[in-house]
Amino acid sequence: MTGKAPHPETLTPGDELARLYQAHRLELVRLAVLLLGDRETAEDAVQDVFARLHGKPAHVLTLPYIRTCVLNASRSLLRRRAVALRRTEPALEAVASAEMDALLGESRQEMLTALSRLPQRQREVLVLRYYLDLSDAEIARVTRIRQSTVRSTAARAPARLQRELG
């Protein structure tokens, strides 16, 4: 081994946050896109989460914790959006744009539209299970719901999705 420079200072919580941000921002934005439906809001949600994590001690700065924060931010945004939609255009669908149709193809777009019609909890469990490949225990930890609830939700949601697809 070659000689090395002296070992500098300790990694601070701020450094660790920056490290997590650089390593996982893309994954978290993608997760938020799947939960929220559009990229711009997803980017804002993730940015907002990291801004709020400043000053938190290092031991809470873990990926599962940050995923939970992104999930909570998405829930909060969807609640606000639901209120806004009730006031304006009640029938508006969340996703669906011509550009997205072209990118994804009709079949995938149908699937995503069906997914967007599911209750929030079912949608979250399906995204965490089939996009992030999390285990039931990990989904329970991220969503803060019981593992048995995760299991039953994961068992029921695909059938509901099938019905939505017609």
Binding site: V29, G105, M111, L126, Y130, Y131
Partner: peptide, 15 residues
């Protein structure tokens, strides 16, 4: 489930 997995991955990849 396969279709869902595929659709989620494809949508995520758009980012």
């Amino acid at each position: 489930e396969d279709r869902l997995r595929d659709a989620l991955a494809a949508r995520a990849e758009t980012v």
